[in-house]
Simulated scan of single mutants.
Amino acid sequence: MPPSLEPITPDNVDAACRIKVSTEQDDYVAPVPHSLAEAYASYRTAWPRLIMDGDQAVGFVMGGFDPEAEVDFFRCGIWRLNVDARHQGAGYGRFAVEALIDEARRRGSKRVTVMWKQGEHGPENFYLKLGFTPTGEEFHGQVVGELFID
C-alpha cells in the first residue's frame, strides 16, 4: 500500500505531534506542534498533512497556498517537511513533496517554492535533487528555492 497524506484531525493530531526529526536536524525545521500552531493561525492559507504509511504516521508536511500574497514566494510553497528520524531514507519526503506539487497543480499553480537553512544536516541537497533551484533570494537567513511545474 503506498503512503498517503491525511488532513490533521482530532483523531490524529497526537500522532502528528509525536513526529520527531533526528537531533542533528532540529536546527533546520520547526517541530510539528509549532507548525500546527502556525497552521491554526494561518488557517486560510496553510495546508497541513500527516504522512501515513498504512496506519502509521511517518511524517508531516505543510504547504501554503495564497495566490494573492504580496511576497511571490509565499504564494505556493512548502512551509514544513518533517520525516520522523526512524523513517528517513524510505522515500516519504519525496512522496510528500510530490503530493504537495500535485495539490499545487490542482490549484492552478505553475511554481512551488521552499526555503531552507544551509548546513551539514540541512535539507538543501534533498530539495536540489528534487529539482528545486535557488532563486538568489534569502529570507530570514534561508535560501529561497523554486520549482516550475506544468
Rank of each mutant, 00 (worst) to 15 (best):
P3G: 09
P3H: 05
P3L: 04
S4C: 07
L5R: 10
P7C: 05
I8D: 04
P10S: 07
D11C: 02
N12R: 03
N12K: 09
N12V: 03
D14Q: 14
D14R: 14
D14S: 12
A15N: 06
A16R: 06
A16P: 06
C17Q: 10
R18D: 13
I19M: 09
K20P: 00
V21T: 12
T23D: 14
D27M: 11
Y28C: 07
V29F: 05
A30Y: 05
P31N: 08
V32L: 01
H34L: 07
S35H: 04
S35Y: 00
A41S: 07
A41L: 11
S42A: 08
Y43W: 10
Y43R: 13
R44F: 06
T45Y: 08
T45A: 05
P48H: 01
M52E: 02
M52W: 01
D55T: 08
V58Y: 01
V58I: 01
G59R: 01
G59N: 02
G59Q: 03
G63R: 04
D66W: 01
A69N: 11
E70T: 06
D72H: 02
D72W: 00
F73K: 06
R75I: 02
R75F: 03
C76V: 02
C76W: 02
G77M: 01
I78P: 02
I78E: 08
I78M: 10
V83E: 06
D84N: 02
D84W: 00
D84Y: 01
A85P: 03
H87G: 01
Q88R: 15
Q88S: 07
Q88M: 11
G89A: 03
A96P: 06
V97F: 11
E98T: 11
A99S: 15
L100D: 10
I101T: 15
D102G: 15
R105E: 14
R107L: 15
G108T: 12
G108C: 12
R111H: 13
V112A: 14
T113S: 13
V114G: 07
M115K: 13
M115N: 09
H121K: 12
H121D: 14
P123L: 11
P123G: 15
N125W: 04
L128N: 05
L128M: 08
K129L: 09
P134H: 08
T135W: 11
T135P: 11
F139K: 13
H140M: 13
H140L: 13
Q142G: 03
V144Q: 10
V144S: 10
G145M: 06
E146F: 06
E146P: 01
E146L: 13
I149W: 04
D150W: 05
D150M: 03
D150N: 13
